[in-house]
Amino acid sequence: MSQRYEIRFSGAGGQGLILAGVIMAEAASIYDGKQAVQSQSYGPEARGGASKSEVVISDAMIDYPKATVVDALLALTQEAADKYSHDLKEGGVLLIDSDLVKKVPAGNFKTVAFPIINTAKNEVGREIVANIVALGAMVALTNVVTKESAEKAVLARVPEAFIELNKKAFQMGFDKAVAAKA
């Protein structure tokens, strides 16, 4: 892969999407030995408002750090799905939370849907790990970083007491995406 691969994590401020992007980029850059840049844009609010975190991964030097045509997009809210799906590339992947994105953006891309936040809340046990559930799913859907590297990157970022919780969240997201894709 010498070309750019572009991933966008979007949703509302406070959902941990910037962190999800950081972990994805760290998996690529530190553990997989690729080039990666993570950037973000968000409103002045600490919570709410549309928020996005972008990751560009490549084997070659990355110049423009933002997305140009998005290969894979996560949208955790309807607002994010509406606002950020316009530059999703043909044949790309769209992952949405099936409870929160009812109006699925139209386009020539593959849409994968499952209740991401509900999975975190009721199956993993804490809503706060929804970003890690989503990350696990994005790792499964994009194949751009190895699962091992992504898991290492997750664990390096979380406090000791929450390692099991995050492991579970990551694995559950990964498995659900594989099942939903099939």
């Binding site: 950081v22 980029a25 850059s29 530190i30 080039q35 840049v37 993570q38 950037s39 973000q40 750090p65």
Partner: peptide
Amino acid sequence: EIVAHMRER
């Protein structure tokens, strides 16, 4: 802001 807030290796 882009250079200051983006992350790279």
